[in-house]
Computed example of a mutant assay.
Amino acid sequence: MSAVRNNPGVRFLPNAITVLAMCAGLSAVQFALSNQIQGAIAAVGVAAVLDGLDGRIARLLDATTKMGAELDSLSDAMSFGVAPALTLYVWQLQGNRIGWVVSLVFAVCMILRLARFNTLLDDTEQPIFTKEFFVGVPAPAAGLLALLPLVVTARIGHDGWWSAQPVVMVWIMAIAALAVSRVPTLSLKTVKVPASTVAPLLVLVGLLAAGIIVYPLVFLAVALTLYLVHIPYAVYRHTWLANHPEAWEAPPRERRAIRRRTQRRLGLRPPLRRSVAGAARRVRLPRRNGHPDGTSRRSWRRIGLRRSRR
């Protein structure tokens, strides 16, 4: 592996992919200036894909360098901070001074988010479970989320309330706030795929690829919406792990067992009804002072009456 690391061509490959990602992101501005909306969206999407590949290829080839890390941060700032801000400004906010301020705020927030990410890489005092989460929305996701009004417009083919200037400005500010916030979001870097699920996942990847080719804008809008929906679950999972140190290094199956034990300890028990053939079976309790056939026998003494004697 040391021979591979010392090969200059191997070290060049991840950095070349990073530069391509930056060029793809900045090309989105050129597409926006040419009024090619779908081209602008595709350029940022290609930049996001390349950004996810360069770091993994560098770790796979053991070719990570300090220069590569700095270049990756600069590429993310350009592709997912400057490019989406300028694209949205050219598309809908051009000529609006407040819109230009909003675009600047978004770009600044993205750069601050990347700077904080770099500082957290050197922080060795963080708990073990924090490697499963990002602090705030990562840069590629934030850049694509900011373009969601543009994606909807390109798919429908005309403007609507989602593309009005006030809505677009509020949306940009909301995504910028999520990027610099400390809201935890899930990271896919630590996900382990069992060997038994490799084949079904490959089939799913093929179906997704076919859907993206046929309906790219629909799949992109759905994916971005699902990403927003997952944030409350990520917050819940982060809070639960912070309160259960015994589950930090446990595999997923053991974590589920710990969660079930915790629910029993809190008194959260399943309902007493049992399901029989898909229906709920009711358990009928015998009546007090009743006969086996379900009829009750009157107790004259309990109601204070005496039976008449004849």
Score class of each variant (00 low, 15 high):
residue 44 V to P: 01
residue 38 Q to P: 03
residue 59 R to C: 10
residue 53 L to F: 14
residue 38 Q to G: 09
residue 45 G to S: 09
residue 42 A to I: 12
residue 52 G to W: 02
residue 63 A to F: 03
residue 51 D to C: 05
residue 60 L to C: 02
residue 39 G to A: 08
residue 54 D to H: 12
residue 55 G to F: 07
residue 46 V to E: 02
residue 47 A to Y: 04
residue 59 R to G: 07
residue 38 Q to I: 14
residue 39 G to F: 07
residue 51 D to H: 09
residue 46 V to N: 02
residue 40 A to D: 04
residue 45 G to A: 10
residue 37 I to K: 06
residue 54 D to E: 09
residue 57 I to Y: 09
residue 49 V to D: 00
residue 54 D to M: 04
residue 49 V to P: 00
residue 64 T to Y: 00
residue 50 L to K: 08
residue 66 K to G: 15
residue 55 G to C: 13
residue 50 L to V: 03
residue 38 Q to C: 07
residue 65 T to Y: 01
residue 54 D to W: 06
residue 67 M to A: 13
residue 60 L to R: 12
residue 50 L to C: 10
residue 48 A to Y: 01
residue 60 L to P: 02
residue 50 L to H: 08
residue 50 L to F: 04
residue 48 A to L: 04
residue 50 L to Y: 03
residue 52 G to Q: 03
residue 60 L to K: 11
residue 48 A to D: 01
residue 44 V to H: 00
residue 55 G to H: 10
residue 45 G to R: 01
residue 67 M to N: 03
residue 42 A to C: 03
residue 63 A to K: 02
residue 53 L to H: 07
residue 41 I to E: 06
residue 47 A to Q: 00
residue 64 T to H: 06
residue 46 V to D: 02
residue 42 A to T: 13
residue 66 K to F: 09
residue 66 K to H: 14
residue 53 L to E: 09
residue 66 K to L: 13
residue 65 T to R: 06
